[in-house]
Amino acid sequence: MTTALALPGLTTGTWVIDPVHSTVGFSVRHLMVSKVRGTFDDFSGVITVPDAGEPSVEASIAVASIDTRNADRDAHIASADFFDAEQYPTARFASTGLRAAGTNLVLEGDFTLHGVTRPIALTLDFHGVNPGVGQGEVAGFETTAVINRKDFGISIDMPLEGGGAVVGDKVTLTLEIEAVRQS
Rank of each mutant, 00 (worst) to 15 (best):
D74V: 00
T14D: 07
V33A: 13
V129C: 15
A165W: 06
T12G: 08
E58A: 15
S95L: 12
N148C: 02
V63N: 01
R118W: 09
E142Y: 07
P131V: 01
E58I: 04
V146C: 03
E176V: 02
T112R: 00
D169C: 00
D41G: 12
A78N: 13
S155D: 11
D84L: 10
F26R: 00
T96Q: 07
P119F: 04
F93L: 11
N148V: 03
L107R: 12
T90P: 14
A80E: 11
Q135A: 08
E58C: 07
G153Q: 01
V16L: 14
V20I: 11
V63I: 02
L98S: 08
T174F: 06
F26N: 05
V180D: 01
I17T: 03
T172N: 11
V46E: 15
G134Y: 03
E86D: 15
D51W: 11
M1T: 10
N104S: 15
V166P: 06
S155P: 07
T117Q: 03
G45I: 13
A139N: 00
F43Y: 05
I47Y: 14
K170Q: 12
V129L: 07
A100L: 07
T174G: 08
S79I: 01
A6G: 10
A59G: 02
V28C: 13
G102P: 02
V57G: 07
K150I: 08
Q87G: 14
Q135M: 12
V16G: 10
V166C: 06
T123C: 08
I147W: 04
V24M: 12
E137D: 13
G164K: 06
A59V: 02
S79Q: 13
T103N: 15
H127I: 07
L105F: 09
F111Y: 10
T96Y: 08
D51G: 11
A59I: 00
A78S: 15
A101I: 06
V133K: 12
V129P: 10
S183H: 11
L10D: 01
T174Y: 01
D169R: 02
V146M: 08
V24Y: 02
A100W: 15
H30T: 05
I77E: 13
E54C: 10
V46W: 12
G134V: 04
A71K: 15
L113D: 08
G134M: 12
H21F: 07
P19H: 04
T14S: 07
I120L: 13
V33F: 13
V20M: 06
V106G: 13
A4L: 12
D125I: 13
R73L: 09
T23C: 00
E176T: 04
T144R: 07
V116N: 10
T123K: 03
H127P: 03
G97W: 09
S22P: 00
V28K: 12
P89D: 07
I120R: 11
R149E: 01
F26G: 00
T2G: 15
T39S: 06
T96W: 04
T23P: 00
G109K: 00
Q87W: 11
D41C: 11
A179Q: 09
V33P: 06
G13I: 03
V36H: 09
L98C: 05
Q135G: 14
D67W: 14
T11I: 06
S183Q: 10
F93I: 08
V24K: 04
A4M: 04
A59H: 10
T90M: 09
R92N: 14
R37E: 11
R149D: 01
